[in-house]
Computed example of a mutant assay.
Amino acid sequence: MARVKGETENDLQKLRFSSFYAFRPFLLTPTKGLTHTHGFYRFIKWFFPLGRWLYPKGFCTLQELGRAMIVVCSVGHASFNIEVKDIVQLAR
Rank of each mutant, 00 (worst) to 15 (best):
T37K: 02
T37I: 09
T37Q: 01
H38E: 02
H38L: 03
G39Q: 07
G39S: 10
G39V: 05
G39H: 05
F40A: 06
Y41R: 01
Y41E: 01
Y41L: 04
Y41G: 01
Y41M: 06
R42A: 00
R42V: 02
F43T: 12
I44N: 01
I44F: 09
I44G: 00
I44R: 05
K45R: 15
K45E: 15
W46R: 11
W46D: 14
W46T: 12
F48C: 05
F48Y: 15
F48K: 07
P49L: 03
P49S: 05
P49K: 11
P49M: 02
L50P: 12
L50N: 12
L50A: 15
L50T: 15
G51I: 06
R52A: 13
R52M: 11
R52G: 14
R52K: 15
R52D: 14
R52L: 08
W53K: 15
W53D: 06
L54H: 00
Y55P: 01
Y55C: 13
Y55G: 02
Y55L: 15
P56V: 09
P56E: 03
P56C: 05
K57A: 14
K57T: 11
K57E: 15
K57H: 14
K57N: 15
G58R: 13
F59W: 07
F59P: 02
C60D: 01
C60V: 00
C60E: 02
T61P: 08
T61D: 05
T61W: 09
L62W: 09
L62S: 13
L62V: 00
L62N: 08
E64A: 08
E64P: 08
E64G: 06
E64H: 04
E64C: 04
R67Q: 13
R67L: 13
R67G: 04
R67Y: 09
R67A: 13
A68W: 02
A68M: 00
M69W: 02
M69R: 04
M69V: 00
M69N: 07
M69P: 03
I70M: 10
I70G: 04
I70W: 04
I70D: 08
V71E: 00
V72Y: 03
V72T: 15
C73G: 15
C73F: 10
C73S: 14
S74L: 10
S74C: 07
S74M: 08
S74W: 03
V75Y: 02
G76W: 03
G76P: 10
H77T: 06
H77W: 10
H77N: 10
H77K: 05
H77Y: 15
A78G: 12
A78N: 06
A78M: 01
A78E: 14
S79Q: 14
S79T: 13
S79L: 12
S79I: 03
F80H: 14
N81A: 08
N81D: 13
N81L: 12
I82K: 03
E83S: 06
E83C: 09
E83V: 14
E83H: 11
V84S: 02
V84M: 08
V84C: 10
V84E: 06
V84H: 00
V84L: 02
K85W: 03
K85V: 12
K85N: 07
D86Q: 10
D86Y: 11
D86N: 14
I87D: 08
I87L: 05
I87H: 06
V88L: 07
V88M: 02
V88D: 06
